[in-house]
């Protein structure tokens, strides 16, 4: 099995008829994802991608007609917050937002609304989710990963690809890979994903890819101590990044010394997480777990 997405996923693509939406929907269809609808206001009634996907004017209509239960958003940044709220309003329970550059104050409002609804928002600024061999809701290239038992969760985009590719070259497959997004305000954090992996029977090991900024890795460390039995391997990007690039004093007051690579690595180590020094270390750490 996989987490968040599977063969039951019925996906609606918001922003299907734009360049990005069209390109990546073609890729997702080729991978095997069950795409039931697209939404572009004003273009309802069309069939696109060689007549494979019907377009609706609203997410509500797409859900009513096709029974869509998940959405992916490629809508441009100025309209993307609205697209998330529209999906939530239509009772979609998994919303994956690929769009990068949504104004942060809009995201504060979106998260405030989403937190009170029964839905899971992944992103924004996320590469999406891939569950080999057949389901991908996002833009992660399908050929860089294979089916397996390692769960991957990451705040990055291309660094996630790098890790999946390194795993595949070492013959290691993935149960599900989730990119939670690189923006300051996101819908789902490490902890929720770790919890899903803990409950997922296929996942045996989890790779957590963090980066400097925020406190998500520190919180994940506490969660791992309290609630995880499966082994976790961590990599934190940004150890060589300068520490003097930040906003005013207010940010430092909030973070209070957390947020640095050092703080994150220390917290994870205290939680028993094996730390990779660089991405190519990860397969060795996985093999060393399995040999015990």
């Amino acid at each position: 099995m996989s987490i968040l997405v599977n063969q039951e996923t019925r996906l609606v693509v918001q922003g299907l008829t734009g360049n990005e939406g069209r390109f990546h929907t073609t890729q997702m269809l080729a991978y095997g994802t069950n795409i039931v609808a697209g939404v572009t206001p004003g273009r309802g009634g069309e069939w696109v991608l060689n007549g494979k996907v019907p377009v609706f004017d609203s997410v509500h209509m797409a859900v009513d007609v096709t029974g869509a239960n998940a959405s992916i958003i490629f809508v441009p940044a100025p309209f993307a917050a609205d697209a998330i709220l529209e999906a939530a309003d239509a009772s979609i329970n998994l919303i994956v937002c690929i769009t990068e550059g949504i104004p942060v104050q809009e995201m504060l409002q979106v998260r405030r609304v989403i937190d009170n609804q029964n839905c899971c928002l992944i992103g924004p600024n996320s590469p999406g989710i891939i569950a080999p061999p057949l389901t991908k809701v996002g833009i992660i290239p399908g050929n860089i990963t294979q089916q397996g038992s390692v769960g991957v969760v990451s705040r990055s985009g291309t660094l996630t690809y790098e890790v999946l590719y390194i795993l595949k070259q070492a013959g290691i497959g993935t149960s599900t890979c989730v990119g939670i997004g690189g923006d300051p305000i996101i819908g789902t954090h490490f902890n929720e994903i770790l919890s899903h992996f803990e409950d997922d029977s296929t996942t045996e090991v989890i790779v957590l890819i963090g980066e400097i900024g925020g406190q998500d890795e520190e919180k994940a460390s506490a969660f791992i101590i309290d609630s995880m039995t499966k082994p976790v391997i961590g990599f934190i990007a940004g150890q060589a990044a300068p520490s003097d690039k930040r906003m005013g004093h207010a940010g430092a007051i909030i973070e209070g010394g957390m947020g640095t690579a050092k703080s994150k690595i220390e917290a994870l180590k205290n939680a028993g997480v094996k730390i990779a020094r660089y991405p190519e270390d990860i397969p060795h750490l996985i093999h060393s777990l399995q040999s015990h």
Binding site: T158, E211, A237, G238, A240, P279
Partner: peptide
């Protein structure tokens, strides 16, 4: 010269390493 912030940071990290 790298595509993506995370990969750019990881590239800097491995250079330093």
């Amino acid at each position: 010269l790298v595509n993506g912030a995370g990969l750019a940071m990881a590239t800097m990290d491995i250079i330093q390493h």
